[in-house]
């Protein structure tokens, strides 16, 4: 019986590859947008501008304090009420960007806050603009603190892409659901799904471990 299902699974493997491709696509786009947004928000969060700091603080608290599934539903089902109609794919990307940027924001702000005031003052005293101070002096030093948890966060974000299956995006987890209806061999199907996720995230786990060791030595 098992062998029969296995041969069916082999039959539908292109379907899995498509799911893997969709997951990779969502993951890649999300990592890029979350990183960009996360750095901008993190810089705001660690700035001296109290209003900016508070606004970002509220945003981060809201995102961290609510389940990702609920955030996806808000983006997908509630935004249309206000006239913003999104397809499942862009809705998934938007939800990922909102969630991921909040977590990365905290990592970036923590890194920037770890740099002493003296570094800011030295850079400012020599006439560098605020953006130059960040780009040339502060962020390069903060990266040592930011990088290991950032890569760790990437692993979490890749796994969180599975949650967007709830709004019907045909990514890996969704493919698993659909397949298991036709091939009632849950263990096999979801082991395969898990293995495929693992194949993307494991290199990043290794990278994160490596960075942690390397930064600890410095």
């Amino acid at each position: 019986m098992m062998g029969f299902y296995f041969s069916r699974l082999v039959e539908i493997y292109p379907f899995f590859l498509k799911g893997l491709w969709m997951t990779s696509k969502i993951a890649f786009i999300s990592l890029v947008t979350c990183t960009l947004l996360g750095f901008i928000l993190g810089i705001f969060r660690s700035s001296n501008n109290i209003i900016l700091k508070r606004i970002v603080g509220v945003y981060v608290a809201f995102v961290r304090g609510t389940p990702f599934v609920v955030q996806i539903f808000i983006v997908f089902f509630i935004l249309p009420e206000w006239g913003i109609q999104l397809d499942a794919f862009p809705a998934a990307l938007l939800a990922m960007a909102i969630m991921g940027s909040a977590f990365i924001c905290e990592i970036v702000a923590g890194g920037i806050d770890s740099i002493s005031r003296g570094q800011w003052e030295a850079a400012a005293s020599s006439g560098l603009t605020l953006i130059q101070q960040l780009r040339l002096v502060i962020v390069p030093q903060a990266m040592k603190v930011i990088l290991p948890p950032l890569v760790g966060q990437y692993v979490l974000l890749i796994k969180d892409t599975s949650v967007v299956s709830v709004i019907g995006v045909m990514e890996l987890t969704r493919v698993g659901w659909v397949t298991v209806v036709r091939i009632p061999e849950g263990l096999m199907v979801f082991s395969l799904v898990g293995a495929l996720y693992f194949s993307i995230s494991y290199p990043l786990i290794l990278l994160s471990n490596y960075l942690e060791r390397k930064m600890a030595v410095q």
């Binding site: 003296g118 003052e121 030295a122 850079a123 400012a124 005293s125 020599s126 030093q141």
Partner: peptide, 15 residues
């Protein structure tokens, strides 16, 4: 600031 050099007690060189 470009016309004024400032030297700190704790140096604050860029490490």
């Amino acid at each position: 600031r470009a016309q004024i050099g400032f030297v700190f007690q704790q140096f604050h060189l860029y490490p």
